[in-house]
């Protein structure tokens, strides 16, 4: 089922809310080192699929394999530690903490996060300095270094998206799952971000899976496109194939009526 080239394989994932089938047997996979986009009309179940894959909601049925392991039963934070890191469509910034603290939070392997180490700073001070340097670097890349000392609650909607992206990067992901990362971000910065992600892909072998509505962005950067409609995966293929597929065009027109 999974081979070395596949980082994520999702099989028959389903989740019902009362009588509503939000995700209804979705199956797709993401190739290691690719940029894959997940598209579909409103209500297709994209965000729910994200929640199920990352463990933020529990699935009624189906399996999630990540980097060769079955992670279907793991809690969300455990999946994140394995390298599957997500952002949220509605940003979850920590408003009453500073922008820098927001970024530093996500750094892995900080012994100072264990309760019994809190009173012995020598065990975590050097790691803390590293983390801080990394966080400042990431904030610089996403254009928020000037805001490092401000409370995150003071950021604009677009800046919050960026901060969330920065926090996800701090977690050192292998697979980055972004839920509408460009919404509310100004286009110039959005393009810079894409370039940055692309660079991380070449340098670090990062894989990106993202939900996006802007078809120019999707077709421009994706290696593969997964199309969802009514909780199912309609097709998965290269952008140029997807663009021409009659079913996809149908799904979007049909979706417009909802």
């Amino acid at each position: 089922m999974t081979d070395a080239d596949t980082i994520l394989h999702v099989d028959g994932l389903a989740r019902h809310f009362g009588g509503v089938k939000a995700v209804d047997g979705a199956t797709f996979s993401v190739k290691r080192g690719s940029i894959t986009s997940l598209i579909g009309p409103n209500g297709a179940g994209k965000t729910t699929a994200f929640n199920l894959v990352t463990g933020f909601e529990s699935a009624d049925a189906g399996r999630v394999h990540f980097a060769g392991d079955d992670v279907s039963r793991l809690r969300a934070d455990h999946r994140a530690r394995k390298g599957m890191v997500r952002t949220f469509q509605l940003t979850r910034v920590l408003g009453k903490m500073t922008v820098l603290e927001n970024a530093m939070l996500a750094a892995p392997d900080q012994p100072g996060e264990r309760m019994w180490n809190v009173l012995t700073p020598r065990r975590w001070r050097s790691r803390e300095a590293e983390v801080k340097a990394q966080a400042l670097e990431v904030l610089d890349e996403i254009g928020l270094s000037e805001k490092a000392g401000d409370y995150a609650a003071t950021l604009s909607g677009g800046q919050r998206k960026l901060l969330e992206l920065g926090r996800a990067l701090m977690a050192r992901p292998d697979l980055m799952m972004l839920d509408e990362p460009m919404a509310g971000v100004n286009p110039t910065l959005g393009r810079q971000l894409l370039e940055y992600l692309d660079r991380l892909r070449t340098e670090r072998g990062l894989t990106v899976l993202f939900i996006e509505h802007d078809m120019d962005v999707v077709m421009g950067v994706s290696d593969e496109v997964v199309v969802m409609t009514q909780g199912r995966v309609l097709m998965q293929d290269r952008p140029d194939v997807v663009r021409k597929d009659a079913r996809v065009i149908d799904a979007y027109l049909g979706g417009a009526d909802e």
Binding site: F17, V20, A22, F50, E57, Q89, L90, D179
Partner: peptide, 12 residues
């Protein structure tokens, strides 16, 4: 966790 007649609410 959501009570006897409570429903799990949909998030996101």
């Amino acid at each position: 966790p959501n009570g006897l007649l409570g429903h799990a609410t949909r998030t996101g």
